[in-house]
Structures are given as structure tokens and as C-alpha cells.
Design a protein around this nucleic acid. Structure first.
Lengths: 209, 209
DNA sequence: CTCCTAACTAACCGTTTAGTTAATTATAAT
DNA sequence: ATTATAATTAACTAAACGGTTAGTTAGGAG
């Protein structure tokens, strides 16, 4: 890559390499030098485009959270009924996480240290994803198609299970012969989404509706 | 603490201090020196009792996983029906995670990097917790009280949501005025367990049972 | 062609890191 | 009291770290 003399391209190369490494090894587990090597550029270039390591990390996380948020929002607008929005939320999040496994890794590693590596204003990214689900639940309750629930727990059940499903992919391969199909190693992400949606739907359905 | 000349006590002090720090900042985010300072001992003592940083980390994680496993197992034996075992699994795991918030943090941070900091044989700890839930589900299916499900996803929904609920405690405080009771900042862990159990129960209940 | 500037580089700096070593202390058994 | 040994320490090393700096290159504008 080196010496392409295209600022946008170089900056993007840095961001992408950083994303791969941060997702694999966490913020502290990655050295600026290793990002430079992966991007095949000089380390000083990273400081040319980003103030420091923390700012680069922020950019990476912000990019991913923006992307998933607008993707969910876009798909959500195609729906009419709350139940369809819920399905859309689950399928879109799962598909995105499957195609961008960096997101689940980064999200879990960041939440596991209580957002220590991110400035406060970065949580708008996480917050507005929750806000989306919360409004779906609220609308469903008002229309009488969802039972009352604890929004934050429903949210954690959905994103928690999808995130863990994605991040444990490699790990689960090692225990395939022990657990067989119970750990869904051969499942496509759509099957997972379908099962999850089916479960959440039953969960939210009133006792006698 | 220093100079107590009690090997067991010193070793335990090291392990506990290490657990607190690893849970807060992750494996790479913690220096051996900082553990020594927290434990109020000389850094060399850590290398006297543990071969290196990685071995200390393993000991910390192994301790926690052993404790939670045997706790769940103990409570599980008091139950007769699969549905009671399920309730016991959820309540016991949640209570333990609430009292030992180091477990959720460590589990998430380790899973987010695909177990990079742990040797393969450490996953017996994670595996056998899943095995417990899996056997509960299987028994329930055989007795006809649970619908067929994807065990790994049920597992991830339970431990994923509980882990996230615990690790995001501090974070959620910052957005209390924005989301109010929707994020359950005042909820006791028993209320969370109750809601989770209620949800999972509905989820697993056959269409017309 | 020349000059300016954005893009880029190699070498370096001070600090922190994981881990070692040789020497010292305290205790319990002989 | 002597001795053996387990527990503890300060001082150290070599490597890796995040970040800086002074200087070089290349390409487009005039």
C-alpha cells in the first residue's frame, strides 16, 4: 500500500487494519506499530491522520456503530406493524454482525471494561440502537400486540445472544464433536435470526392472545 | 498486608487483587506492577507464586468458573422438575454474577477475543456450564414440558443478558434520566431473574400447553 | 522548470512493561 | 543457639510501548 499518496485511501487502510486488530485483540492488546505493519505503512502516518491511538479507536467504533444504526433504521422504515419491525431489528442486526464480526467483538470488549476506552459521547452509538428497540416495544404495547416487558432485558437478550453467537464461532468449532448440532456450527445466520425472532415473539405475546 | 509470611494468605491476596483488576481493565490492560501495588506486596512475590502473568490470569478465571459451576450444580440437585432446574439455573447464575461482577466482565472480555489469553483446556469451565443447561433442556423436551429449541441460543440469551446487565451497571447510571425505568437501574437482581425466567418459560412452552 | 505543500519516512525519546537475580529476613525444627 | 528453608525484597535487564521530530519525496499549480 505504502506511497500511494492518496490521503483518503491511506486513512481508510489505517482504519480498516485497526478495526481488524482491535476486534481480535482488544484496545490494549494492539500496538500502534502492529497496525502500521498490517496496513503496510509507516507508524508515523497513523499519527499524521489521527491524534493518538485512542482517537483512532474511537473512529473505528464510531464507524461501526453508525453503520449498524443506519442499517437498522433503513430496514425499520419499510415495516408497518411492530412485530415486523421487531423481526427486521433482529434480522438486520444479526446479518450485519455476521458480515462484520468486528462489531460484536468490539462491543463486548468495550462493555466488558465499562467503556473505559471511549469518551462519554460515544455511547450515543449504543444508546440509539437501544432506543430503536425500545420504541418498537413501546409501540407494540400501545397497540396491544406485545405484552409489557423490561426493554433493557429484551435488548440484552437479542444483542447479547447474537454477539456471543458470532464471537464464539471459532471456539465452538473446537467442541463440535462433543456437542454436535446443539451448538449450531453449521447454522446459517438466517436460521439463528429466525429462531431468535420466534422465541422473542412468543416471549412478548400476551397470555391469551 | 506485606510481610505476613503466610503463603496461603499472600497467594490469595494476589489472586483477589488480580481478579479485581483483570475484571476492570482486561488482561492486557493490567500490569503486574499494578497488581502488586493493589495487593501491597513486592512484584517479585507474584513470580514467586505464579510462573507468569498468563498463569495468574488462568488461575483467576479458573477459580471463578469453578465456583459458579459448583454453585449451579449444588442448587440444581435440589430440583425435581426441569422447569424448576431452569429457574434454579437462571437465579443461581444471576445471583452469583451480581455478587461477583468480576465473572461477567472476565467472561465477556475473554469471549470477545476468542479466548486468546487462555489455554484450550480452560474451556472446560465454560463448556460444563453450557452442558448443565443443555441437559436441563434435553430432559424437559423428553418429558414434554419444553418445546424443541436451539440449546446454544437459549444459553446465550440467558448468560448474555445477565452478563450485559451486570457489566453495564455503571454505564446505565449515566443515562438514567433519559431512559428512566426502562433500563432497570433500581431493579434488584431477583426481579431481573424473575423476568428472565418468566420470559424463557414462555419461550419454551409448547404452542398449546 | 520551480516551488509549494501534502504525503511520507527513519531514527529516535522517555516510559513502561514482563520477568530475573542475588541478597535478606523471619520462622520453625533440631 | 544453630541451621535449614520458606518468604520477601530492591535493584536490575531487555524489550516493547506510544508518541515525536527533523527531514525527504512526489505531484500539481504557477
Amino acid at each position: 500500500m505504502a506511497k500511494c499518496r492518496d490521503a483518503n485511501k491511506t486513512k481508510e487502510t489505517i482504519t480498516y487494519s485497526a478495526m481488524e486488530l482491535f476486534a481480535k485483540d482488544g484496545y490494549e492488546g494492539v500496538s500502534v506499530e502492529s497496525i502500521a505493519k498490517k496496513a503496510d505503512i509507516n507508524k508515523a502516518m497513523i499519527y499524521y491522520y489521527f491524534k493518538n491511538k485512542a482517537v483512532l479507536y474511537e473512529a473505528v467504533v464510531r464507524n461501526l456503530l453508525d453503520d449498524i444504526y443506519y442499517e437498522i433504521l433503513k430496514e425499520s422504515k419499510k415495516c408497518k406493524k411492530p412485530i415486523d419491525e421487531m423481526k427486521s431489528f433482529i434480522f438486520t442486526y444479526a446479518k450485519f454482525a455476521d458480515e462484520n464480526p468486528y462489531l460484536p467483538s468490539l462491543m463486548l470488549s468495550e462493555l466488558s471494561v465499562g467503556g473505559r476506552n471511549l469518551p462519554d459521547d460515544m455511547f450515543v452509538g449504543l444508546k440509539r440502537i437501544f432506543s430503536l428497540l425500545r420504541s418498537i416495544l413501546k409501540r407494540g404495547e400501545e397497540k396491544g400486540c406485545f405484552e409489557k416487558s423490561l426493554p433493557i432485558m429484551v435488548h440484552f437478550m437479542i444483542v447479547g445472544s447474537i454477539n456471543l453467537f458470532i464471537t464464539t464461532r471459532q471456539l465452538r468449532l473446537k467442541v463440535e464433536n462433543e456437542f454436535g448440532k446443539d451448538i449450531c456450527n453449521d447454522c446459517k445466520i438466517e436460521e439463528i435470526s429466525e429462531h431468535l425472532f420466534y422465541s422473542i415473539k412468543k416471549m412478548l405475546k400476551g397470555e391469551d392472545t
